[in-house]
Design a protein around this nucleic acid. Structure first.
Lengths: 348, 348
DNA sequence: CTGTTAGCGCGTTCAT
DNA sequence: ATGAACGCGCTAACAG
C-alpha cells in the first residue's frame, strides 16, 4: 500500500497517464517544449498543474548526469565582503538558467566546515563551485578537482598556484590608497596598525602603504603590529601608543582591518585625542563590522560585488566551454572617505 | 568506451569490485557501519579512499526518497537581519547531522525569485525549508505544503494564518522601546518618522511608540508618514519638518527603519540642528544599512540570530517528530544606544 | 512528432 | 554478516 501516492508525490508517469500521452512526451514538454505539438503541450501542462506535479531533481540529476545548480561556499556571512560577492554571483547566475545555492562556512572552526560543505556540494553533483578562500587554504580546490568538479577561487593570495581560475583583490593597492588618502590630507607621520608581517595579506597592505609614503617623499610610516586583527588588538595598539610623548604620536593611522580601527578609536578618544583632528584614521577594508564605531570610519572598500560577478562568469565559462582556459583576475579597491579622516561633513 | 570511468566518476560497484565485496556491503559500511565486520569495513574504507570514491547524492536521495538537506530562503543578504538568521539556523543545523543550503531571493523583483528558489528547494527534495517572509507574502508556504514539504515561516506579521510554525518579532515592542528610550532621556515632543499606517509592520511600531507615550503621561507623539522606507523618504520628512517654526519641532524622533534615519540625519544637521542636542534619533531596527551615518545611530536591534535558532529547531522538530504540533513563537528586540540619542560617549 | 526502453547510482528488502 | 535483485523517477536515444 505504500506506493508513490502515499508519499504524497505525483510522478511523471502519472501525469502521462492522466494526460493520455507517454512518459517521454511529458519529459519533452518539460525539457524540450519545441519538440512537442502545441496542442499536446498545452494538455500536458494543464495536467501537470492540475495534479500538482513537481519535478524530482534527484532523479533528474541522476539520469542526466549533472544538475543545473552552482554553489558558493562563503567564509562568513557577517562580513559584507562575502555577502557582496554572493550578490554579484547571484545576479550573474539568475540570468543564465542556473541556480545558485550558498553555504556559510563560518570562521570559528578553521576550514573544517568549509571542507564539509565542499564535500556536500561535490556529492550533490553541482556544476561548479565558487570558493571564497579562508586562511589562504586552497586545499578545497583540490578536493573538488579530484572529484571531477569545477571551482573558481575567490580572494586568493598572489602566490597561490592552483589548477583553477582565481579572482583576487589588489591588497597592496588597498594599503597604498589608504596611506595616500592620509598623505593628501597633509598627514606625514603615519602608522600602520595591526596584524603581522608574516601574514601575506597584511604584508601586502603594509607594502602598499610604504610605497605611498615613498612616492610622497616627505613623510614616514611605522608599523605597529598586533597579534590578531580584532577590536581588542586595536585597543592594545592604542594603549601602547598612549605611553609615548604627545609629539611622538602619528598624525595618521592606517588600520589593517576595520575591526582594528574600531578598537583603536575609543582608546584614542579616551586619551583626549581628536579624530581626525589629532590623528586621522582609515581602515584597509570595509566589512561593516565597524558599525558601532564612535566616529564614522573612512575605509578602503573591497570590490566584493565585482568579485562575485567576475568569478561566476569565469565559472560559467568553464562549465560551458570546451575551450576554457584558466584566468587570474585582479580587482581594485576604492576609498570611502568618512569622518574619521576628513572630519564631520554632512552628506548632501 | 563511455563507461562511468570516462565521466570521471567512481561508483559504489567499482569500489565493491576492487574491495572484493558486494555492492550492498559497501552501502552498509557507508550507512550502517555496525552491520559490517570490522575487518571488511576497514578494507572497504581503504578502497573508498584509494579510488577517490564520492557519494552521488542524487542517486542516494532518489533511492532513499529524501535528502539530508534543509534550506533557508532569505530575503536580502545585504540586510543583517537575514544573515543573523542564517547564522542562527546554521549553528543549530550543523549540530544535527543535516546540512543547510541558503538561497538569496533579493528584494528587487518582488517575490518572484523567492518563488523560484522555493520551487528549486522543493524539487531538490529538501527535508524542510526556512522561509523568511517578504512583503507579508505567505503564499510560498502553500507551495511547499502542496508539494508535501515542510516549512517554517520567519518574520511573519501577527495576523497570518498558515499551516506552519511561525517565528515573529514583536514589532510593537520595538516601537515601544524606541519611544521609551527617548522619553527616558527627557524628550517629550516625539515624532514617528517614515512609512504608512496601512502597512502592518509600521502600524505596529507606531502603536508601540504611542503606547509608550501614553504610559509616560506627560508627552506627545505625532506621525510623519512617508511613501516608502528608503533614505530618500527620510530626507523628504526632514525637509517638511524644516518648514516649521523652530519651537514647533520634535525633540525626539523614532525612525521607522534605519534607512529613514540615515536620510533624516544629514538634512537635520544641514539645517543647523544638533543630534542629539536638539533632536534625539533612534531607529526601529538595525540592519546595518546605516553604516554611512554621519552620526552613529541608536537602534532597536532585532533578534535575528535567535530567530534562526528557534526557527531551525522548530523545523527539525517537524522533520523528526510524528507528534509535531505547529507553534508560533514571538521574540523580543533590544535597544542599542549610540550617539544619535545619548551623545558622543566613547566606548570603554 | 510521439511512444518505448535502457540505464543513471544507490538503498533496501530478502535470502543465505 | 553478506550478497542478489528490485526499483526510486527521470532523461535520452531510438524506433516508429
Amino acid at each position: 500500500m505504500a506506493g508513490p501516492q502515499s508519499r504524497g508525490t505525483v510522478t511523471m508517469s502519472e501525469v502521462a497517464a492522466a494526460a493520455g500521452v507517454s512518459l517521454g512526451t511529458v519529459s519533452n514538454v518539460l525539457n524540450h517544449p519545441e519538440r512537442v505539438r502545441a496542442e499536446v503541450r498545452e494538455r500536458v501542462s494543464e495536467t501537470i498543474i492540475r495534479l500538482g506535479y513537481v519535478r524530482n531533481s534527484a532523479a533528474r540529476t541522476l539520469a542526466a548526469g549533472r544538475s543545473n545548480t552552482v554553489g558558493y561556499v562563503m567564509v562568513d556571512m557577517a562580513n559584507s565582503l562575502y555577502t557582496d560577492i554572493a550578490r554579484g554571483a547571484e545576479d550573474v547566475t539568475s540570468s543564465s538558467g542556473m541556480y545558485l545555492v550558498v553555504a556559510n562556512a563560518g570562521i570559528e572552526g578553521g576550514t573544517a566546515r568549509q571542507a564539509t560543505y565542499i564535500d556536500h556540494f561535490v556529492e550533490d553533483q553541482l556544476q561548479g563551485i565558487l570558493l571564497a578562500v579562508f586562511d589562504n587554504d586552497v586545499s578545497g580546490a583540490d578536493r573538488v578537482r579530484q572529484a571531477g568538479g569545477r571551482v573558481v577561487l575567490l580572494d586568493v593570495a598572489t602566490d597561490v598556484d592552483v589548477d583553477a581560475c582565481t579572482v583576487r583583490i589588489d591588497y597592496e593597492l588597498s594599503g597604498y590608497l589608504a596611506a595616500e588618502h592620509l598623505l593628501r590630507l597633509g598627514r606625514t607621520r603615519l602608522a600602520f596598525a595591526g596584524g603581522q608581517r608574516s601574514i601575506h595579506a597584511i604584508a601586502e597592505r603594509l607594502a602598499g602603504a610604504e610605497r605611498a609614503v615613498a612616492d610622497h617623499g616627505a613623510a614616514a610610516i611605522e608599523f605597529l603590529p598586533s597579534h590578531d586583527l580584532q577590536a581588542a588588538d586595536g585597543r592594545e595598539v592604542a594603549r601602547s601608543l598612549a605611553e609615548r610623548g604627545a609629539d611622538d604620536l602619528p598624525d595618521g593611522i592606517v588600520a589593517a582591518a576595520d575591526l582594528v580601527a574600531t578598537g583603536l578609536m575609543p582608546e584614542l578618544l579616551a586619551r583626549g585625542l581628536q579624530i581626525p583632528g589629532d590623528v586621522a584614521l582609515i581602515a584597509c577594508d570595509d566589512n561593516k563590522s565597524g558599525y558601532d564605531n564612535v566616529v564614522p570610519l573612512s575605509t578602503v572598500d573591497l570590490p566584493g560585488y565585482a568579485i562575485g560577478q567576475v568569478g561566476m562568469n569565469l565559472l560559467l565559462d568553464e562549465i560551458r566551454g570546451a575551450d576554457h582556459v584558466h584566468r587570474r583576475v585582479v580587482l581594485k579597491p576604492t576609498v570611502s572617505a568618512r569622518e574619521s579622516s576628513i572630519g564631520r561633513t554632512p552628506l548632501v
